[in-house]
Nucleic acid binder design. Structure first.
Length: 804
DNA sequence: CTGTTCTGTCATACC
DNA sequence: CTGGTATGACAGAAC
């Protein structure tokens, strides 16, 4: 069921994207085939592109669903991290490209799909918001206003934003789709089914509607008419596209925008027969750099020869579109700061991407201001770099929502209230559902899948397909990185095994849970936690709680107490079963007496009749013990169940229970010994039993303390990491703010210099004079060479007090 | 069969 | 000194 669900969800997403953006007809079968290798092979036959996508899909599906939770999660985790790193690097590079936009689309879809299940705020997109805020104000307003003027949206410098140009077209195409004009009954039924299935996932019906639209569009394919149709549709799309405003990757907004982006990319990459209809610049991954035309052609970008090998090298030299206004230094600093942050989190993948950093300065305007935004771009960057800067910007915007969701904690979140609600992807991760993670990744995979079909030609795309892998990988990486950043979410999300493997990054809570799981005593809690961890977020939550609490969990303690009461036995077997309870008891001093009494009394009190009353109703051992009791004579059973000291005590005919020997206070213990006339051997044995019993409890307590210490340390590490990440984000934000302020100062200085005249009416050349600002608000004009060079060459240093 | 984990026990230090 | 606790180390059992 899960598998099917996921499959359908992903399929819907893909459909939506394809239909909305391309207007190209997308065959469901194709999509299915991409995800389901066998079907695809049957229908289309094997293809390299297909294979790749298939691999990703497989991995995703596996991850999400149910293969060994451990391996799968870990795989996803590491993969996502790697991909995230790559993506971030790319962002820094600020590679412009349609591909980037495609990534955004995937993410959004994923987020949308996952949105239903998610509930983890920690992973929210705060970052994105912060980035945007940090980013040049110009960009943000444009973004938010986006519906109105997509062109100007992101890059003020680049007059033409590809987005603007592209978006309108898309919207036009989509407009008709929205109407579901061409939907057949079958389509509608399918959509309904999918919708029902995905409701659990939280996907909105909207998604399905999109898919319908896509189907319709598939039939219709891109028509010039569509573009005309949808002024309204465009607006709606743009609204959806206004990621920053509604960072929430809610069904439509997040998805729709990215989809459009993707479609654009796809179009650009793969010119359709109807290319004339879509003038959007086509950027083949490989040819990308060459193709990239000036973004100036926002609406009708020239069609670049899109035919590029599907597997173009990820890193193409980014086209320099430096924004003159921004200082390269500043930008570079920003980039470096971001890079450092990434480097901190990311491992090795960044190196390759970093190489492209040269180009990044160009894109820096967007990047520098909002680091987060930059990262998403970076992810895209790797795929096709030829894309125009404008496109990058647009992609940026589109991608932001998803990214922001991922990094909520890192960035100053308050800005986007709307964004907080949609946190699908991250939430899933945090929740710890492997399926969720898979779903998120699945979206990325979808992109990959999506592309292959195009290459195959099932979709009208004729041009070379963009390599699906980079996108998916980038998305995954970003997701993973974010996940890593959010320690808590991570911890909760991953299963015990996963956490243990993750080691440093993951919490040690898993260790606790593992213990519990191993112990037969607490099958309900431990087992449920384990199984649930793999399957459901709720279970993961319980798990995390248990782990955090450790042995001291209240619920556990209660259960333990009951168990212990039932259990009798100082014997190793019993103790094993009850070890959790033991620890609990020990941890709670007031309970020690009771617990010990229960544990140790039974064997002694009812030496031969104990087995029928054995408390172990749950564990394997309990069953074994019962069986053994039936088969074996009571004495043997006792011997087997009892500990060495128990047996010795019986052999020595000690008149009282080991429990008393161990737990009685010294005074009472001495009285007890005095009452009975015991031999030296018996006294020695009793003292040894008492000593060993005490030591045993001490050892248990010691181990528990040790474990708690480790857990606390892990928690501390996680907290520190969070703080570190937060501080790094803040640093990036500050850098961006400083840069903006510098720019403002520069512009204002220019204004001032333009108005300034010396006594002779001559202007002060900005190149020779600089403004110095006093704390009291006064402004002084000083020759630039004053400090370093010789002041003499400057006419005179004039001091003027200017009031602004 | 091997490696890991859990548990009990011992030795020792400390209070 | 006695009694108890804490902890590292070891070994056996179970998985």
């Amino acid at each position: 069921m899960l598998y099917l669900k996921k499959y359908f969800t992903e399929g819907l997403i893909q459909f939506t994207i394809l239909l909305s953006l391309l207007g190209v007809r997308v065959d469901v079968d194709t999509y299915l085939s991409t995800q389901l290798p066998p079907l695809s092979e049957i229908i289309l036959g094997p293809s390299s592109a297909y294979t790749q996508t298939q691999v990703h899909n497989l991995r995703n599906t596996l991850d999400g669903y149910g293969i060994h939770p451990k391996s799968v999660d870990l795989d996803q985790f590491f993969t996502t991290r790697r991909l995230l790193n790559q993506v971030r690097q790319l962002d820094r590079l600020s590679v412009p490209s349609t591909e980037l936009s495609a990534w955004l689309v995937h993410r959004d879809q994923e987020t949308v799909v996952s949105a239903a299940s998610q509930s983890s705020p920690s992973i929210t997109l705060d970052n994105g918001a912060g980035l945007e805020d940090l980013s040049s104000p110009d960009a943000t307003p444009a973004m938010r206003g986006g519906g109105g003027a997509p062109e100007s949206t992101y890059n003020p410098h680049a007059a033409d934003s590809i987005l603007g140009a592209v978006a309108p077209e898309r919207t036009q195409e989509q407009g008709p789709r929205d109407g579901n004009e061409d939907l057949t009954k079958e389509d509608i039924d399918l959509i309904d089914i999918l919708w029902k299935q995905d409701i659990d996932l939280g996907a909105g019906r909207e998604v399905f509607n999109y898919s319908n639209r896509q189907k319709d569009s598939e039939e219709e394919k891109p028509r010039p008419e569509e573009s005309k149709e949808g002024s309204e549709a465009q607006e709606s799309w743009r609204n959806g596209v206004n990621l920053q405003e509604a960072q929430p990757v809610d069904g439509e907004t997040g998805e729709s925008i990215p989809e459009q982006e993707c479609l654009r990319l796809l179009e650009a990459t793969f010119p359709f027969g109807e290319e004339s209809e879509f003038p959007a610049p086509v950027i083949a991954p490989e040819t990308g750099p060459s193709n990239e035309e000036s973004p100036s052609t926002s609406r009708a970008p020239p069609l670049a020869p899109p035919l590029a090998p599907p597997l173009a090298p990820p890193l193409a030299p980014p086209l320099p579109q430096a924004e003159p206004q921004l200082d390269l230094e500043q930008q570079w600093q920003d980039i470096m700061a971001i890079m450092e942050l990434q480097a901190m989190e990311v491992n090795s993948s960044s190196a390759s991407t970093s190489s492209g950093s040269d180009s990044s300065p160009e894109a820096t305007p967007s990047e520098a201001t909002p680091p987060d935004t930059s990262t998403p771009l970076g992810t895209f960057g790797p795929s096709p770099r030829s894309t125009l800067i404008n496109r990058d910007v647009s992609l940026h915007q589109a991608s932001l929502p998803s990214c922001s969701q991922d990094f909520p904690p890192l960035f100053t979140p308050p800005l986007d209230a709307a964004s907080s609600p949609p946190r699908p992807t991250m939430l899933r991760l945090s929740s710890g559902n492997s399926s969720n993670i898979n779903s998120t990744f699945g979206a990325t995979n979808l992109t990959g899948l999506f592309l292959p079909p195009l290459t195959n030609g099932t979709n009208n795309v004729t041009s070379a397909p963009v390599p699906p892998d980079p996108f998916s990988t980038l998305l995954e990486d970003s997701m993973l990185d974010e996940i890593s950043l959010l320690d808590l979410a991570m911890e909760e999300g991953f299963s015990q095994a996963q956490t243990s493997q993750l080691e440093d990054e993951l919490d040690s809570d898993s260790g606790l849970s593992l213990d519990s799981s191993h112990s037969p005593v607490s099958p309900s809690s431990s087992e449920t936690s384990c199984s649930s961890a793999a399957s459901s977020s709720s279970t993961s939550a319980t798990f995390s709680e248990e782990g955090a609490v450790g042995y001291s969990t209240d619920s556990e303690a209660a259960a333990v107490e009951t168990d212990e009461g039932a259990v009798g036995g100082y014997q190793p077997g019993y103790s094993k079963l009850c070890r959790m309870s033991y620890q609990e008891f020990h941890s709670l001093p007031q309970l020690d007496n009771i617990g010990h009494n229960h544990t140790y009394n039974l064997p002694l009190s009812s030496p031969f009749s104990d087995h029928p009353e054995l408390p172990f109703s749950n564990g394997k051992k309990a069953v074994r013990d019962k069986q053994s009791c039936k088969l074996q004579p009571p004495q043997d059973l006792l011997d087997k169940q009892s500990s060495r000291d128990e047996r010795r005590a019986r052999a020595m005919k000690i008149p009282f229970s080991n429990e008393k020997i161990i737990n009685l206070p010294v005074e009472e213990f001495n009285e007890l010994l005095a009452k009975h006339h015991l031999s030296e051997a018996q006294l020695a044995l009793i003292r040894d039993i008492r000593r060993r019993g005490k030591n045993k409890m001490a050892a248990q307590n010691c181990r528990k303390r040790k474990l708690d210490t480790i857990l606390n340390l892990e928690q501390g590490v996680h907290d520190l990491r969070r703080d570190k990440t937060r501080l790094q984000k803040e640093q990036v934000e500050c850098i961006g703010s400083i840069r903006q302020m510098k720019q403002k100062m520069q512009s204002l200085s220019q204004v001032v210099f333009a108005q300034l005249r010396d006594e002779e009416g001559r202007p002060y050349p900005p190149s020779e004079y600089s403004l110095q600002y006093g704390a009291d608000g006064s402004v002084l004009i000083t020759p630039r060479g004053l400090a370093a060079a010789t002041p003499s060459r400057k006419p005179e240093k004039k001091q003027k007090d200017k009031k602004k």
